[in-house]
Amino acid sequence: MEIFKGKKYIFSRGIAFYPEKEMQLLKKQGEKGWHFRKMNQVGLLVFEKGKSEEKEYSVDFFDGSPDELSEYLVIYKQAGWGNITNYKKRYFYFKADCGTPTIYSDAESYWIRMKKEWNWLLIHSLVYLPIGIVLLIMLFFTKTSKSIFFANLWIRTMLIFFGMLFTVLPLGVAISVIFSLVIYRDRTKYYNQPERFARKQKVLRDSIILAMIGFIVGVLVSILLRNSF
C-alpha cells in the first residue's frame, strides 16, 4: 500500500479468482474515506481521498460484444448498481447502497458467470503458447549453431526464459482454475453473500501453494530442456 499526492495504491487481490475479496477491500477503504477510482495496468487499485461512506461493491465479468455493453450496464443500473470503472473492458466495478441485492439471482447463474470468465482466461492465455513453442524450438535447433548471435549466453538465456514462460503460462492458468474449483467448490452457494465467502478465501495460503506447484512444474520443464541449453 502506498499513498502519493492524495491517492492510495493497493495491489488487487485478483479479480479473476478473488472478486469477493476485492469487493470487501473496496468497501473497507470507502468506510475509511478512500474512494475507488480504477485499476491500472500493473494491477494497482487507485483510491482518492474523500468523505467516509458505507457502500456495497460488486466486481463482474462481461463476456459480451461492445454492442451489448450498453444493455449490460443498464441492467446493473436498474438493479441499483452504478458503474465506477472497468478493467480492459472485461471486468466492471459497481457501487450501490448497502442492502442492494446482488445482480445474480441464483447459484446457477453465478456458475455460468464463473465458467465464461475462466474459459475466456484459458483461451486468451493460449495465445502465448505458439510463441513459447517457437522460442524453445529455436533454442533446440541452434544448440550447435556457430552463429555468434545464437551462441551468445544472454541470447540463449532470454530464449529459454521467455520460451518457458509463454509455454507454461496457459498451464498456470489451467492449474489456477482447477485449484479454485477444488478448494472453493462451494463458491456458487454464496452467490448473494460475497462478504461471507470472502472470509473463506485465503489469498496468501493459496499463493504459496500455487507458487510451490509452479516451482515443481518449472523444475520438470527445466529438466526436459537441460540438454537444449
Rank of each mutant, 00 (worst) to 15 (best):
E2S: 06
E2I: 12
E2T: 12
I3E: 06
K5W: 08
G6F: 03
K7Q: 11
Y9K: 14
F11Y: 09
R13W: 14
R13F: 15
I15Y: 12
Y18T: 03
Y18H: 12
Y18S: 07
E20H: 03
E20L: 05
E22I: 02
E22M: 07
Q24D: 07
L26Y: 15
L26G: 01
Q29L: 13
Q29I: 02
G30W: 15
E31W: 10
G33Q: 13
W34D: 02
H35N: 13
M39F: 03
N40F: 09
N40S: 04
V42D: 14
V46G: 01
F47Y: 13
E48M: 10
E48A: 12
K49D: 03
E56L: 13
Y57M: 05
F61D: 04
F61Q: 03
G64V: 00
S65H: 12
S65P: 07
P66S: 08
P66M: 08
P66L: 09
L69Y: 05
E71K: 07
Y72H: 08
V74H: 07
K77N: 09
K77C: 02
A79H: 10
G80T: 03
G80I: 04
W81N: 00
T85M: 13
N86G: 05
K88I: 02
K88Q: 11
F92H: 07
F94Y: 06
D97S: 11
D97N: 14
C98Y: 10
C98P: 09
G99T: 09
I103S: 04
I103C: 06
Y104A: 07
D106M: 11
A107I: 08
E108T: 07
S109H: 07
S109W: 09
I112P: 02
R113A: 14
M114Y: 05
K115L: 12
W118R: 09
N119G: 11
L122Q: 15
L122Y: 15
H124C: 05
H124W: 12
Y128M: 08
Y128W: 06
P130T: 04
P130W: 01
P130K: 01
G132L: 10
G132Y: 13
V134K: 06
I137K: 15
M138D: 07
F140N: 03
F140G: 00
K146A: 08
K146C: 05
K146P: 02
F149M: 06
A151S: 12
N152V: 01
N152R: 01
I155P: 00
T157V: 10
M158T: 08
M158C: 04
L159H: 02
F161W: 12
F162C: 00
F166H: 09
F166G: 04
T167C: 04
V168E: 13
P170V: 12
P170W: 10
L171Y: 10
V177I: 15
I178D: 00
S180K: 04
I183K: 15
R185I: 07
K189W: 02
K189P: 00
K189T: 02
Q193F: 04
P194V: 02
E195A: 08
R196M: 15
R196C: 13
F197Y: 10
K200G: 01
R205N: 13
R205Y: 11
R205L: 14
S207A: 14
S207P: 04
I208Q: 04
L210W: 03
L210M: 13
L210Q: 13
A211D: 10
A211Q: 07
A211R: 09
M212D: 01
I213Q: 03
I213P: 01
I213W: 11
V217W: 14
L220T: 06
I223M: 13
L225P: 00
R226I: 14
N227Y: 15
S228R: 08
F229I: 13
F229S: 06
